[in-house]
Amino acid sequence: MRITVPTALTLMRIVLIPVLVVVFYLPYKWTSFAAAAVFAFASVTDWLDGWIARRYNQYSAFGAFLDPVADKLMVAVALLLIVQVHPTKWMALWAAVIIGREIAVSALREWMAALGERARVKVASIGKFKTIVQMVALTCLLYQEPLLGLPVFAIGEWLLAVAALLTLWSGWAYLRAAWPVLGRDERTGVN
């Protein structure tokens, strides 16, 4: 198997997960900046690997499998770190919504692929917008400190709430797209 540049970027994102955890727990003043920087860098590589794959036609089956796994792992770990340090009911709720939706949509995609209906649940533009909001929110929450007089953490909290709502909306869009298949009678194949 040949490792393409996009796949190498995705593998690097997975390697950055334990780096994020270690940096997050270091006992120095600069760790919140460093954790936010690691997460932001990983987020940029997520965009970059897709851009390179499309621009230079560097697709691979392994990369197509690994990219969403890397994204979900990075987001889930960041959410767990944030909720552990800021264990509020709202933070826990938003994290549960985001992680729960990712598990449900992954299972839905896998099931639809097994039925030969994977094209019905392809990534929609709302999902891409949700990802951008979510990545900015998590970067702000990892950074935690005010910046230039801006309450970065509070901005992150609000953006995470928006991301969770967009998560529900995009999850509903996936479910609605799959519904004709989900509603079929397995014995007759009729809705």
Rank of each mutant, 00 (worst) to 15 (best):
A124Y: 01
P151H: 04
P6C: 05
K122F: 08
T139S: 09
V97G: 13
A35C: 12
T131S: 14
A53V: 10
R55A: 04
Q84K: 10
R2W: 02
G100D: 08
C140G: 07
Q144V: 13
W179R: 13
L182C: 10
A113D: 12
Q144D: 11
I14C: 09
Y56E: 04
Y56T: 07
A154N: 06
Q134H: 10
L165K: 07
F33H: 03
E117W: 00
L165S: 15
E186T: 11
A161M: 05
A8G: 06
A96M: 08
S43T: 14
A42C: 08
W30R: 13
F153K: 04
M112D: 03
W172K: 15
W94Y: 11
G171A: 08
D185Y: 06
D46G: 10
I99P: 13
V75A: 09
L147T: 10
Y25N: 13
P87H: 11
A70Q: 00
G171P: 14
S106G: 12
E102C: 09
A114V: 10
L108P: 12
R55T: 12
K130T: 13
V38A: 04
A96C: 11
V162R: 01
C140H: 02
M91E: 05
A164T: 15
T167F: 03
P68S: 03
T188R: 03
E117F: 03
S125T: 15
V38H: 02
I155W: 01
E102A: 12
L11M: 10
F24S: 01
I17R: 04
L81E: 04
K122R: 13
L148I: 13
V162T: 14
V152L: 02
P68D: 03
I132T: 15
W179Y: 08
L147R: 04
K130E: 07
A154S: 12
E110L: 08
Y25F: 14
K122P: 14
Y59G: 11
S106F: 01
E117R: 11
L159K: 02
T188C: 06
L11C: 08
W30N: 15
R54S: 07
